[in-house]
Amino acid sequence: MKLTVEVWRQESPADAGRWERHEVDDAASHLSLLDLLDLLNDQIAAAGGEPVAYESDCREGACGACGVTVNGVPHGPVPRTPSCRQHLRSFDGATRLRIEPLRSAAFPVVRDLVIDRSALDALVTAGGHVAINSGTASDAEALPIGHDDAETALDFAACIGCGACVAACPNGAAHLFAGAKLAHLAMLPQPALERGRRARAIVDELEQRFGPCSTYGECAEVCPAGISLAAVAAVHREGIRAWWRGRDD
């Protein structure tokens, strides 16, 4: 299969960036997006050029490193699937791919397709963690968690931190990511001890770095972890609750 690939090239965060056009002649349909980038890079290197920088690690949808935007859609045309698990065969015979970084003001481009996701780390640092002494293994035995609660909490914990939800949002909001953390930790007995403090810290961090949620619902369409759109409402549920109670838990 012959493919026209337009790829975003950017030397550094300060560089304005530009599109670069390549023809890839033997793009087999079983290739993943990252395989295609590897093939393209071989071609570029053989011609003496500088390969396109992109991020990847697990290549199996677990690490969240690989997200790129394909024809305007974060991760690519297949819904709820990370870039590394998107294969050319499911692109409906597209012959032209525009590949650019995940876009949002909160994610500066480091180089080419590589972005800086520190803004998401800031949310985790602010409140996406458990900062209490949770005791020893036997204490865990003493705090049984119902099966349904454990499953729901795990569903919200499935986020791989890829940042696609932010890039999918026309407002640059991170409510799906932040709400997933809040919903997950609010359901478990030990993390819930700092539920109010966590909500205030995360809501405040969201204010500083991200945009407002207008319930477009695009985030949940691209989320490779299948986080439900209900997570965006957890931001306000937890925020209102913390404001109402005015306490740390």
């Binding site: 876009r103 949002s104 890039a167 949002c169 026309p170 407002n171 640059g172 770095r209 407002p212 207008s214």
Partner: peptide, 10 residues
Amino acid sequence: GRRARGRFRR
């Protein structure tokens, strides 16, 4: 929202 999204519109 526009500012948080930045230069490249969705």
